[in-house]
Design a protein around this nucleic acid. Sequence first.
DNA 1: ACTTTAGTTCCATTATACGAAATCTTTTCG
DNA 2: CGAAAAGATTTCGTATAATGGAACTAAAGT
Lengths: 253, 253
Amino acid sequence: MQDVVQSVARTLSILEVLSDYEDGLGLAELSIKLDLHKSTVHRLLSTLIVMGYVEQNAVTNKYKITLKLFELGSKRIANMDILEIAKPYLKELMEKTNEVVHLVIRENTDIIYIDKVESETTIRMHSRIGRRSPMYCTAVGKAMMAWLHEKEVEDIWNKSDIHQYTPFTIVNLEDMKKELKLIKQRGFAMDDQENELEVRCIGASIFDYTGKPCAAISISGPITRMTDERIEQFSKWLIHYTLEISKELGYKI
Amino acid sequence: MQDVVQSVARTLSILEVLSDYEDGLGLAELSIKLDLHKSTVHRLLSTLIVMGYVEQNAVTNKYKITLKLFELGSKRIANMDILEIAKPYLKELMEKTNEVVHLVIRENTDIIYIDKVESETTIRMHSRIGRRSPMYCTAVGKAMMAWLHEKEVEDIWNKSDIHQYTPFTIVNLEDMKKELKLIKQRGFAMDDQENELEVRCIGASIFDYTGKPCAAISISGPITRMTDERIEQFSKWLIHYTLEISKELGYKI
DNA sequence: ACTTTAGTTCCATTATACGAAATCTTTTCG
DNA sequence: CGAAAAGATTTCGTATAATGGAACTAAAGT
């Protein structure tokens, strides 16, 4: 363990930094950001170019990542049954609610958005396929946590970087445990401005054939539209659809 | 140039191999496939694990890639206006035709599928978001090539690995030039089983504000459904919608 | 119980990655 | 316009850091 190859770690950092810059970065900028010598960065970039992960703009000299990362990354989720199975349900949910509907899967302490359906009329939400968020402050994350053993919940909590995103974020483990009990009881989770002000989401978990929560769906909207009455109605649909998807994945009862 | 850091190149190869195996690979398998010593592969994998790109299954010991690659890769296309702009048009095209509609962008000699809309009734196509294909044997690729200068077409051709996928694949540059002339004239391209037997696609290019072809849309279906009469109708819609999208991107006339 | 196969750790060796400096290129601005 | 600055690239001597053989451990197969 703890056996890290320097050049590789540095290269991955380069990719991570570059992925944030749509128009790419120059060599000098990059080496400052990473606190590495120019020649080192240059050499690593050359390698990335040869391997097809980065390209250099012939006129500005800026380096930016190619679509190869996207290509590789997509493979990982492409052969997930859940994507295909959930699609029609996501659409229906969106049509019924006229709000943004997300599909996420879990990876350790985080959730990753892997699909999204929004109506033309919807206000553009601050979400993105591929985005990673912590479980503890999202409706989908909490919805999945509610069905895990207490031990595992504590584990997630401890490994998470708990951050008070808004005044409503739950930052206390005991409060979270109470919240999870409530979620399990009523069948869905609510994120009431815990992640982002003015935004309310409800989420419910999807279960695989072993009964483990493996994904989740959420309905999100501005607090002005996500009223208690509408949530009352939405949650019923949400629970119904997530159960349907779980069944298609082989979940029994 | 030609300055490649060995360990980095090897690591990227590991990622590429791993991305093909949904359930991961064992250390031994990997080292055989890559023709590298076990300890070397192990060290590089440790680095990938520390950096969050790979995880090891605690029970099977198999290594597989995490969603981090997907996360990074998605960033690259997330802030492309084209995705948001094209979405409603893709939907409408699908609804009108009841066939699969794809959105692709170009990267050098290839096209990458970045969005896809299919109806519930559609036969599952052999396509995938994130997939890379050569330009010369796809409707979308040819549709974009038709608007490039001859010089650039030749360049793409020379850099491409021309392969006769089916008896209908165009493998001769002169034939391709004739084909491109025809495409430019009628405004859309057709892939008549050139990429995959039994499949017919039509594609048309989208242009950015500089007038360069920057993306393309295709309608694909089995040859039995993609009759000449339907293609006649589809192509009109396709040309109309791609022009609309181009306009939204700032394309004049 | 013995053999085989796979994964992990150790360590001596030197190939390999490093970074200082020099060079080349482009941009800035006095 | 020309000098200077900023940025990118290349070179090269040096030492570090990556390598791979070997030993060790664990599990699976016979």
